[in-house]
Nucleic acid binder design. Structure first.
Lengths: 325, 325
DNA sequence: TTGTACGCGTTATCAT
DNA sequence: ATGATAACGCGTACAA
């Protein structure tokens, strides 16, 4: 490894002069600076990150923690995060799994963005207490070192419910995520509020898991109930909605989505645009979510005061929900 | 930040005793060791990564470099890589973009796995020359510090072609990836070999881009050519195959995939299992690919001698290819 | 068994 | 304008 010491020796100056020159300090002749830069280039000098961050106490790297690498959902979010961080002079690394949590206290990353239910809130608070800066995307934590960038679940769930009711549906199934999911809880609360204030609506809640299998299980229950009237199902994410659509197509070829059975999802994932019929769902910009999370984190790190942020959602009409017959 | 100094003071011992105790050295009484561990826990001590790696010259972190975070394709591969590395005591971070390349020379990561055409081969060799260990998944580089874990493109492309020919197809379109893609070049070579040694086969090569739009463009050309006989299309990845299927469904509702037009892909992505009809494609274990890459890299780092590896592929029959009529 | 002292590569302070 | 020197936190050889 080539160090500034090597450069100093070869250039015939002291290491502090080298350091100053390399960091663009004005207190060094442009001539010697040029010489030093030339030598550095010649020796393929690359500053050692460990040594620097030992001194500066920062690495200019941000970590984003995900529950898994399945990615279909995260692509745009990561892209948005990365581009924003790059503009601010930071690098991004994607982390998953408990072992990688230590990157924060060990000082490998300067801050963290968390979208991972398996990351304990208590642990997060512990880090925040020690002065680490974090942005959470999947829970509420009030702490001066933590910022929240949350989906507007209430608006999304309300939009979905009101749309189903507008289209004349009165028997509505809500398929939730796992009980541990903050987003699922928020959506359920909004769903129940809408159901309570609307006459005639019969709401049946089915506990799901945000996976395709959860959709399939829910579909079995719904189909067992289904009589001559139609029913509508609000799946708290697209994955389960797709699970239902697949299951119906396989096992109930006579049941048409958008006729006897109406389905609305949440997230507008890429896969949702490939269902037949096209899934009606709640849409929001995953890229913007990532961008905003990055911005908020940098502000926190810079010591700026920041308010929690919210990602707004819209209804995306497909053909999986039509007027009730 | 709490350092071993703080622990030493609080426990009433010297810093070296602390260091030894924490690193499980046998030259410290189990009693004092216990005491030190207790104090460390009480103070929430976490060793500083920068300081440690400055000394040990390693971080126990591996980086995997991808061209983007789109993920739909990478999920299993990353999972396999991560699990294998975890077993070996390493962490994994996912990197993308030119800026993150510096993590290798700066010593932030102990080694790299590369699946990113935008990562220059020359740059890779430069790192290898300086002693860094790398595994490449998307190119051939002969270097003692670089190991290759490549797809068996030749077998895959040959399987695909022979299957089409077996099913009676004689007009075959091959839709390639971008010219810069190693995998695409390998597949094309195999395709041409099969075509040359088989009588009657008419091969038309269309340059694609591995994206859905490339599939659409190819479909336009194919449909313009299409007369009463049927044609088969070998897309060098699933993404383009899906692009074709979508385009045909929208613009040529009378043309049935698996009747007038036959399509085979490559990769067996998740999306491919949702097409109608189910896409016939070349399958391989992305998880195994990741696992093998991780294993090879660790061997390289440990100084073991390693041979290049190959990932084997199989034909996965769907319904998008049927007998020629 | 425990403590001292030095080195790792960089930055920053303070003389010269 | 330039250079000597002291941190930063950890590991370790060596001394006590």
């Amino acid at each position: 490894m080539v160090t500034i010491k090597d450069i100093a020796r070869k250039a015939g100056v002291s290491i502090s002069t080298v350091s100053c020159a390399l960091n663009g300090s004005p207190k060094v002749t442009s001539k010697t600076a040029a010489k030093i830069h030339a030598v550095a280039k010649e020796l393929n000098y690359v500053p050692n990150a460990a040594a620097r961050s030992l001194k500066t106490r920062e690495t200019k790297i941000i970590g984003i923690f995900l529950s898994d690498f399945s990615g279909a959902f995260y692509g745009d979010l990561l892209q948005g995060t990365k581009e924003t961080l790059t503009k601010k002079g930071y690098d991004l690394v994607v982390c998953s799994g408990k072992k990688s949590h230590s990157m924060l206290p060990e000082g490998i990353i300067d801050g963290a963005i968390i979208l991972d239910v398996s990351f304990d809130s208590e642990e997060i608070v512990r880090y925040a207490d020690r002065g680490h800066k974090l942005v959470v995307l999947d829970r509420e934590i009030a702490h001066s070192n933590i910022n929240q960038v949350l989906l507007d679940n209430k608006a999304g769930a309300t939009l979905a419910m009101e749309y189903l009711i507008e289209e004349g549906h009165r028997t509505i199934y809500a398929v939730t995520g796992p009980a541990s999911s903050y987003d699922s809880k928020q959506r359920l609360r909004a769903v129940m509020q809408v159901a309570e204030r609307t006459a005639d609506v019969k709401l049946i809640v089915i506990e799901g898991d945000f996976e395709k299998t959860g959709g399939k299980l829910a579909a079995e229950q719904v189909m067992a109930d289904l009589r001559e009237e139609s029913a509508a199902v609000f799946c708290f994410n697209d994955e389960m909605a797709i699970g239902i659509i697949n299951y119906i197509a396989e096992s109930y070829p006579d049941t048409r989505i958008g006729q006897q059975l109406h389905i609305i999802g949440f997230d507008n994932t890429e896969l949702a645009s490939y269902t037949h019929p096209r899934l009606t769902t709640i849409n929001y910009s995953k890229r913007k979510w990532g961008e905003l999370a990055a911005e908020q984190l940098i502000k926190l790190i810079n010591g700026d005061t920041v308010d929690n942020e919210r990602i707004y959602v819209t209804l995306l009409q497909g053909n999986s929900v039509r007027k009730a017959t």
